[in-house]
């Protein structure tokens, strides 16, 4: 089965990203395909590599990056939502005249069309949000 997962909340403030991660991991363990994970609304905040949680807590961002690397996941951050919230890769940063970027490994910034395409190409869309 092919899944697209939408994450609509940022890390730590809401459990959505944790639930989505656990779901994705369980789906992969069962041999399913994750076509895409799409980060929208405050969910784009899952993509900042500047996150520094306390050492005794999980690192939500690094965990997504590691899962992406291990399973070649497509982690897509909505560009419009990311611009509002200050999540940028090198290209976006340059385009918008910013002095830094902060995107974490394994994430890429793209348009909302990627969510719709995920809905079209996948067997199931599963949404985690608030």
């Amino acid at each position: 089965m092919k899944f697209t997962i939408q994450v609509s909340e940022g890390p730590y403030n809401h459990q959505a990203s944790d639930s989505a991660y656990q779901f994705a991991k369980a789906a992969l363990e069962k041999g399913h395909e994750i076509y895409r994970v799409f980060f929208y609304h405050d969910g784009v905040n899952n993509a900042t590599r500047l996150t520094t949680p306390p050492q005794d807590d999980r690192n939500v961002v690094n965990r997504w990056s590691a899962l992406a690397e291990e399973h070649n996941l497509d982690l897509v951050v909505c560009v419009a939502a990311a611009q509002r919230r200050g999540i940028a890769d090198a290209d976006e940063s340059k385009r918008n005249g910013k002095d830094a970027d902060n995107i974490a490994p394994g994430f890429r910034i793209s348009g909302l069309g990627q969510l719709i395409e995920g809905g079209i190409q996948s067997d199931r869309l599963v949404i985690f949000g608030d």
Partner: peptide, 8 residues
């Protein structure tokens, strides 16, 4: 979570 995946 595995059961959640199965339900989905």
């Amino acid at each position: 979570y595995a059961g959640f995946v199965d339900l989905a």
